[in-house]
Simulated assay, not measured.
Amino acid sequence: MQNNLLVVLGATATGKTSLAVHLAKEFNGEIISADSRQIYRGMDLGTGKDLDEYVLDGTPIPYHLIDIADAGYKYNVYEFQQDFVKAFELITAKKKMPVVCGGTGMYLEAALKGYKLIAVPKDQAFRDELLDKSLDELGAILRSYKKVHNNSDLETQKRAIRAIEIERYCASHPEIEIDYPEMNPLLIGIKFDREVRRARITQRLKERLKSGMVEEVEALIKSGVSADDLIYYGLEYKFLTQYVVGDLTYDEMFTSLEVAIHQFAKRQMTWFRKMERSGSNIHWLDGFMPLEEKIQKVKELAVI
């Protein structure tokens, strides 16, 4: 095929993993995860790793950038870009096809466009100056920078402050060069209409709670990961932690988390539309299309 990289993207709960794994088998490939939270060990149900799906007909499909850091660590997009390049080169050196799977738009763009990123050091004094700001105020500060790398990460105060810290540093320091490999990606998106997507998100949330998502958070805290660190990761870990420590009732947790995931999925789709406006050609597939038809469509696109 003409492409040397396949990318499967979409909002949460659209079936990305299943399609990516089947495509990896079809094209003799290996998966590279582009999910900002599947990085962490022990954070499984809340991040939707679905590792069982990486085995087809008894054969495991190799994957990369999953379970590579301890929960509590603050992995960032700079590290992801470095790790992505290593994984890409490792897979291609074996004459295999890298298949990127994920919904973290910033990670996808960092991988696909080779932005020159830098490791931004912490500036505690500057962070302290922002502690009394509201999320709205922090958002306004973040958007004041001309070239914002990530203006969607405003779910918690810590994340917003870190994003501002990065933009402030970038504004006053030259970006480092990165020896980036040439890539010819084929981007495949999976899409459901809004109401269907919302129903799928709600159903999956109920299933994961039944499967032990609360117990997963309890185990992480028992292992020594602080409640504040878990809340930093947002979404499931934010609201489940607040429930576990007694700040929310179960019903409050479920309702707040359901709304937050719906909002997150909307932000994901907004990011993908921004990628398209910036020149990324995403071939969207109807989520209801049978898996075999999705695979056939990708095969057709791969030889165009």
Rank of each mutant, 00 (worst) to 15 (best):
N4T: 05
L5N: 03
L6N: 03
L6T: 05
L9S: 11
A11N: 02
A13Y: 05
G15E: 09
L19H: 12
V21L: 01
S33L: 07
S33E: 10
A34P: 08
Q38S: 04
M43E: 06
G46A: 10
D50C: 06
D52P: 00
V55W: 00
L65Y: 04
L65N: 13
I66W: 00
D67V: 02
D67C: 03
I68S: 05
A69P: 01
D70C: 04
G72H: 10
D83L: 09
F84D: 07
K86T: 14
A87L: 13
E89H: 09
L90H: 15
L90W: 11
I91H: 08
K96Y: 00
M97K: 10
P98I: 08
M106T: 14
A110Q: 13
A111P: 13
Y115D: 13
V120M: 06
P121G: 06
Q124W: 06
D128W: 01
E129G: 03
L131V: 11
S134N: 08
L135V: 09
D136E: 14
E137F: 00
G139R: 08
R143H: 14
S144N: 14
K146T: 15
V148R: 09
H149R: 15
H149M: 14
N150H: 08
E155I: 07
Q157R: 15
K158E: 14
K158A: 12
E165S: 14
E167V: 11
A171E: 15
I178D: 02
L187I: 14
I188A: 01
G189I: 01
I190N: 08
D193P: 01
V196M: 07
V196H: 02
A199R: 11
L205D: 07
S211D: 15
S211M: 13
M213R: 09
E218W: 01
E218K: 12
K222G: 00
G224P: 05
S226H: 13
A227T: 14
Y233P: 03
G234M: 09
E236M: 06
V244Q: 02
L248M: 12
E252D: 12
E252L: 01
T255H: 08
E258N: 14
E258Y: 00
V259F: 03
H262Q: 13
K266C: 00
Q268K: 02
T270E: 14
F272C: 06
F272E: 10
K274E: 13
N281C: 04
H283P: 00
M289A: 10
P290L: 11
L291I: 14
E293K: 15
I295E: 12
Q296T: 14
V303D: 04
